[in-house]
């Protein structure tokens, strides 16, 4: 019963996460100068207390899309004999973060109103 509940919770988080993945990536890169793929997955997991997991190849297509849109810049470094690709915000990306964060804040605010999620004092 518990496992089933946990599975449903993870599935729902994954679906909700999908729509906000780009905002999350942009925000993380705004807070950190540059990050690589695995580092991003770990940071998301860490910040969400293990609740958000970037699974099944969702991260890289999102990173590649942001790169193609010119919001991210990439650089490579040789780390321990292997090529590591780092992502960082481009100038356009930096201004996009503010916009996306504003959109997310408005959305969450409205969602709270619609679903009546605001804590009430009784």
């Amino acid at each position: 019963m518990y496992i089933e509940k946990l599975y449903i919770c993870t599935m729902s988080s994954a679906k909700l996460l999908k729509g906000t993945l780009q905002t999350i990536i942009l925000k993380l890169l705004d807070d950190h100068e540059k990050m690589y793929g695995y580092e991003i997955t770990q940071k998301v997991k860490e910040l969400s207390g293990g609740e958000f997991k970037l699974t099944e190849g969702a991260l890289y297509p999102a990173l590649h899309k942001l790169e193609a849109d010119g919001l991210l810049e990439t650089s490579t470094e040789l780390v321990d004999g292997r090529i590591r690709k780092y992502y960082s915000l481009s100038r356009e990306g930096k201004s996009e973060v503010k916009e996306k964060m504003g959109e997310a804040a408005t959305f969450i605010e409205k969602l709270q109103l619609v679903l009546n999620l605001k804590p009430t004092v009784s």
């Binding site: 695995y38 997955t41 997991k53 970037l54 699974t55 099944e56 190849g57 991260l59 890289y60 297509p61 590649h64």
Partner: peptide, 13 residues
Amino acid sequence: DQDIGSHKGIAWM
């Protein structure tokens, strides 16, 4: 399986 999504994930990527 979890991060990349195996063959399907690589094909999609």
